[in-house]
């Protein structure tokens, strides 16, 4: 018993907790960006686009390719790094958008009237195809970028916030706000909301459904391209990261309230925090029974609990009332 109490108090330092919060928010900002894509597609089509995570994975390889082309190293000057990263982002967004558009057209559109399980199985097929394609024709190993944009802002004790983390946080919030405006204010956004509420009525009202759905995929996938760049600034990639990152992003979308844009964002941050804090303190809390090896369990457990107790998510969807 004493051992458990010792465990509880040891390791709980303010620096540690602050650092874990930063870790969680950093991870969460990427989850949030991927979650936006899931959430939009689900909102419009009611389909879990299982291949979305793999679109993101392809994005990370595009970023790798572009930065590799320019031979960036940790010592490259900012005057080179920033334009190259911008170019990498644009390339990743463009390629992901094309890919998302193609996937919808090839794998989902023919199944729009099929039974409900059909598009889901097709999505799994696409996901495996993309992973295997990268492993076969690009690389089946792990890759990282050099440490770009080094430098940090000291916060408290020896904890500091790195420029990259600030960038990740700011860009994901900017993307979310931009997307929110797009859905609220443009005619395309109106079309999306209409299709989400009632597909047939929207079509009767003159909304071009195919176009709206295509655009939903294009925008969601382009956001995954942005997420890919941010991810590569901090983490590593291989052909299978998309599946896991995608699952967690989906969990984030559900936690926040699927179909809801700020919800997806909130869910992403919450999930990132849950993972970081969970991995860090589960051992202290559980008296050493559980260890940080259970990190992945938290995301799934969070998702399951959420679905059981509050299936509509933290922010109830407003785009349309289903369920």
């Amino acid at each position: 018993m004493q051992r458990c109490l010792d465990l509880l108090t040891s390791g709980l330092t303010p620096e540690g907790i602050l650092q874990q919060l930063i870790n969680g928010v950093t991870l969460g900002s990427v989850y949030a960006l991927i979650a936006l894509g899931y959430s939009m597609v689900y909102g419009v089509l009611e389909l879990i686009n299982f291949a979305h995570g793999d679109v993101f994975m392809i994005g990370t390889f595009v970023v790798l390719g572009v930065t590799g082309q320019f031979g960036l190293t940790g010592r490259s000057s900012l005057a080179l790094v920033i334009p190259v990263l911008l170019l990498a982002m644009i390339a990743a967004m463009a390629l992901c958008a094309v890919l998302g558009f193609t996937i919808e057209k090839v794998a989902y559109r023919p199944l729009r009237r099929a039974p409900r399980l059909a598009p889901l199985i097709s999505a799994i097929g696409v996901s495996f195809f993309l992973q295997a394609w990268i492993a076969t024709y690009v690389s089946s190993r792990d890759h990282t970028l050099p440490n770009l944009l080094a430098g940090d802002i000291p916060l408290y004790g020896d904890v500091s916030l790195r420029y990259v983390q600030v960038l990740m946080l700011v860009s994901s919030v900017v993307m979310m706000v931009g997307l929110q405006q797009l859905v609220r204010r443009t005619s395309l956004g109106r079309g999306m909301r209409a299709v989400a509420q009632d597909r047939e009525a929207a079509e009767l009202m003159g909304v071009n459904m195919d176009r709206v759905i295509s655009f939903t995929f294009i925008i969601g996938s382009a956001l995954a391209g942005v997420a890919a760049l941010l991810w590569m600034l901090n983490y590593s990639t291989n052909q299978s990261i998309g599946f896991i990152a995608g699952l967690k992003a989906f969990a984030a979308a559900v936690i926040g309230g699927i179909g809801n844009i700020p919800g997806a964002m909130l869910g992403g941050f919450l999930l990132g925090l849950a993972e970081s804090l969970g991995a860090a303190y589960v051992s202290n809390v559980s008296c050493g029974i559980f260890s940080s090896a259970y990190e992945d369990v938290f995301a799934f457990a969070f998702l399951i609990l959420m679905l059981v107790f509050r299936p509509s998510g933290i922010i109830r969807e407003r785009v349309s009332q289903r369920a």
């Binding site: 090839v106 799994i124 097929g125 696409v126 495996f128 195809f129 993309l130 295997a132 394609w133 492993a135």
Partner: peptide
């Protein structure tokens, strides 16, 4: 796995 994915779709 690639062939499987394609076949499944």
């Amino acid at each position: 796995i690639l062939v499987f994915g394609a076949l499944l779709v």
